[in-house]
Design a binder for these strands. Structure first.
Lengths: 348, 348
DNA sequence: ATGAAAGCGCTAACAC
DNA sequence: GTGTTAGCGCTTTCAT
């Protein structure tokens, strides 16, 4: 990019050969003899040659790069997804470019538009929880840019997806609380825009129903801006209004940790007379006192699978054009102190 | 990139004008009349035109993009830095491409090489704690690619840097422990490759010296792979070997949280007979029991300043060629429960 | 095995 | 104001 950068032509002139030969030699094409290949490579190294990404990809129409659109990368679960993506991509010699939307719809649109400009071969998309419109995604389909949804799902869009089983994860969490003897279980939700959140809500209701517990809509609180503090405030309000509530299922560990703080502040004994379960297995969940039971999600695996799916589609668009697999990964309930009312039920 | 993507030529043919006119109209060049401009834009929108990033930047030699090389994005401090970077970059109409090295030297070299290929106008670099060689950085300088170090510093490289005052941060933390009456203060270190770590060690020694406490080399433990568990194990070993140790200064909050766990396991009362201070103000520090005193770093501000510095250099290389400013940001000691032996000293 | 030449999609210099 | 032309740096025919 910068002035004076060494280019193919410079190497070619130095060796009195053509740029085509240099290009071929550097890319180990078989037409070039071993001797010439080594000579070219030596000179390239000596001159500190760096191939121009823009030029080579403009010409070859291939980037060997995937773009990742993700709201935030701020906790263990997200980090493990990124890890999985990076591992799988690196194994396939793909570069990874990450773009963080910070849960802004506008930034998401911008990120996707930017990635649509030919800088990557395909996209891994985790939509923000503010994403209500989908035209930017449909645009990708019209432009034939391969993409795979991961972690978050937009049901009405027909595309490959890798998500966790939010319904069962929530169901098992709430069932566990019921089996531990809790009956009046409240649920701290996010803004419910996200499809996964809706499934967790259904899982919560379904578990109650299975055990003949009448659901109480007032026990479900929507918390648009998730944080520990918001979780604490919401729980304090809930418990003051409905003192009979004896457990909280939080849609994230942050809310659940807030619930633990609130319950302790109000003199509830955890887990003796108050149970809490979270979702995602953040680092805080194993550090908070009492340690937080939570539903862990296989982030690394999810990142790997989504990336593998995407690369398959990039490498062979025809073959995979029709197939739009939806992979639903299993969650695992980690029982820690915050819900272990009965003896010997801890599994983590 | 994909077949059938609409290009300037398609718009030009449709309107029976030249591609140059289309290009100018879309970029709001004043030579083009308002009428034509709107007409072109309408058609472009109608045809779902997306400019080809590669082609335009190959031609104009400008990308309006910066690359970020960072070891991990796995906790609040890193996230706040990324936030600051994104905010400042967006304000200046720059795209941000993030590449995570996972503290691998090889991945760092690869990332920087990839970014050197003309995809970005400049780089923001936070070196990994495994980075012992610097030829890949020197290469950037030779290629005239602007870059700014942030958070982590390689002293021998003459480049713009934005870092926190590790020395004073550590000094104040240890001084605080001393003022709280702790005398036998151990220090949990990382692998000491990083310059910031070395400064924190010096700050630790310096505080001891100021208060006439003879330093004991055995009280400093190197922990290459930082985690809560490693911090706990190291502290347990330390306390078994040197039971007179009455406080720990951890180079990160993870190690400090491990130290809290270890001290509790061994029956030490925190903060009555054992003090702990960490560094960075991770989310876990406010959640752990007792809450962890820590040295907070202005991540958002750091990201902003580093980005501003980089963009200045990109926009006007000549003007800033000679200047290599080193910005050292202040840290803040957050006194929480883990070190508050004296009454009323909590400030957070 | 190597070179000449075309061209990826776009923008800038120069015409008019 | 708009068109023509050249060319960014590279890869890929098509020659030889």
């Amino acid at each position: 990019m910068k002035k004076g950068r060494v280019k193919l032509k410079d190497i070619a002139e130095k060796l009195n050969i053509s740029t085509a030969t240099v290009s071929r030699a550097l890319r180990n094409r078989i037409e070039i003899g071993a001797e010439m290949r080594e000579k070219v490579k030596a000179v390239a190294k000596e001159m500190h040659y760096q191939p121009n990404f823009m030029a080579s990809h403009l010409r070859s129409q291939r980037n060997f790069a995937i773009g990742v659109v993700i709201p935030k990368v701020n906790h263990q679960y997200m980090a493990s997804m990124i890890n999985g993506i990076l591992e799988e991509a690196t194994d396939n010699n793909f570069q990874v470019i990450i773009n963080v939307t910070e849960h802004s719809y506008e930034k998401e649109v911008k990120a996707i538009e930017m990635f649509s400009s030919g800088i990557v071969d395909g996209l891994l998309i985790c939509v923000s929880n503010q994403t209500k419109y989908i035209s930017h995604i449909e645009q990708l389909q019209q432009n034939n840019i391969p993409f795979v949804f991961f972690d978050k799902d937009i049901p009405k869009i027909d595309a490959p997806k890798v998500v966790v089983d939010d319904f069962t994860g929530a169901f098992v969490a709430v069932e566990h609380l019921i089996q531990q003897g809790f009956r009046n279980i409240a649920h701290l939700q996010d803004n419910l825009v996200n499809h996964g959140s809706q499934k967790r809500l259904k899982g919560y209701y379904s578990a109650l129903k299975k055990y003949g517990i009448v659901k109480n809509e007032n026990f479900v609180m929507q918390i648009p801006n998730i944080s520990i503090g918001e979780g604490r405030i919401a729980t304090e309000n809930l418990l003051r209004t409905y003192p009979n509530i004896d457990a909280i299922f939080g849609i994230t560990d942050e809310l659940a940790v807030g619930a633990i703080q609130a319950a302790k502040n109000l003199g509830r004994k955890i887990p003796e007379d108050f149970g809490v379960v979270g979702f995602s297995n953040w680092q805080i969940s194993s550090v908070v006192n009492p340690t937080l039971s939570t539903v862990s999600q296989p982030g690394n695996e999810m990142g790997k699978i989504a990336t593998k799916l995407l690369i398959q589609r990039i490498e062979d668009p025809e073959k995979y054009y029709e197939k739009k697999p939806i992979k639903i990964l299993k969650t695992q309930l980690l029982v820690r102190e915050s819900s272990s009312r009965l003896k010997n039920c801890l599994n983590y």
